[in-house]
């Protein structure tokens, strides 16, 4: 059933173009229209909700129900908020491709404009966390060390010391956090996607989330340093033991074979 959406990629693409064109026209119209700014914004908002509903009906309704009330195949979306939609669709988790222990991330199917429209629609179903602004999740200037401590208290138990991910029960897992955008990390903490618990602002204020993101960027970003050399995955002693056996003892056995080998003899004539 969920594969339906995947198969509809091509027809969807056509709709996307249409919608973009419509949105552009609408946007232009709104820009040039003589009405007040606030009114224009409101109009744009309701337009986005309308477009979002169309996208929703095509791509999401089969599992989450026509009004977002949820079905046996997907949870209710009432009250999950725009942030949840932005995370789920933005990381490619939704629409899901196949049932399984956990829905994995994959390249996003919708572009950001469409995601915004979907988010606007779902947000209109019931109040929930809004999509955070750049200012909210931007880790610049945050306290990396404090983030490390918060990370070890709240996150490391599932995601590993430096965010390499880890196993949960029955095939579920906490995903690898390398390369995940700060916005998505923020949203995940805010909304608690799938089996991850949420860490709402009431118990983990915005600044602490920023600290955690800053810590992750410091230890698991593209430019993170590993002074001692190869990280060997960052998984700890299991990976180190395997490396030691294969490359440590392996190399030494190879050397020992050379040391003990017979030297080439002169050819018998």
């Amino acid at each position: 059933m969920k594969k339906l959406s995947a198969r509809r990629r091509h027809p969807l693409a056509a709709i996307v173009v249409l919608i973009l064109a419509l949105a552009a026209t609408g946007g232009l119209y709104a820009a040039f229209a003589p009405a007040g700014e606030a009114q224009a914004e409101e109009t744009a908002q309701s337009l986005a909700i309308d477009e979002g509903k169309k996208l929703y009906t095509v791509g999401c309704a089969s599992c989450h129900g026509t009004g977002g009330q949820g079905t046996s195949d997907g949870p209710s979306l009432v009250g999950v908020g725009a942030a949840a939609v932005d995370f789920q669709v933005g990381t490619g988790r939704m629409p899901a491709q196949q049932p399984g222990a956990q829905v994995p991330d994959k390249p996003a199917l919708y572009d950001q404009a469409q995601i915004d429209q979907l988010a606007a629609y779902v947000a209109s179903l019931g109040a929930g966390p809004a999509v955070p602004t750049t200012e909210q999740y931007d880790p610049a200037g945050a306290d990396v060390a404090r983030g490390g401590q918060l990370y070890r208290t709240n996150c490391a138990q599932c995601h590993n010391f430096t965010g390499e991910g880890g196993a949960l029960t029955h095939g579920k897992y906490a995903p690898d956090l390398s390369g995940v955008a700060p916005k998505h990390i923020y949203q995940a903490m805010l909304t608690g996607p799938q089996n991850m618990p949420s860490f709402p602002d009431t118990t983990m204020p915005e600044q602490e989330k920023k600290d955690i993101i800053a810590y992750l960027q410091a230890v698991n970003g593209e430019d993170s340093v590993s002074p001692g050399g190869l990280k060997i995955g960052g998984f700890g002693p299991v990976a180190e033991g395997l490396f030691g056996w294969v490359f440590g003892l392996g190399a030494l056995v190879a050397v020992a074979i050379w040391v003990a080998a017979r030297t080439a003899k002169a050819k018998k004539s």
Binding site: R152, T153, A156, Q157, C158, H159, N160, F161, E164, G166, A167, A174, F235, G236, P237, V238, E240, G241, L242, G244, W245
Partner: peptide, 11 residues
């Protein structure tokens, strides 16, 4: 009161 997954001893 803190812990990380992949908590293993040396091999």
């Amino acid at each position: 009161d803190q812990v990380s997954t992949n908590a293993q001893p040396d091999w």
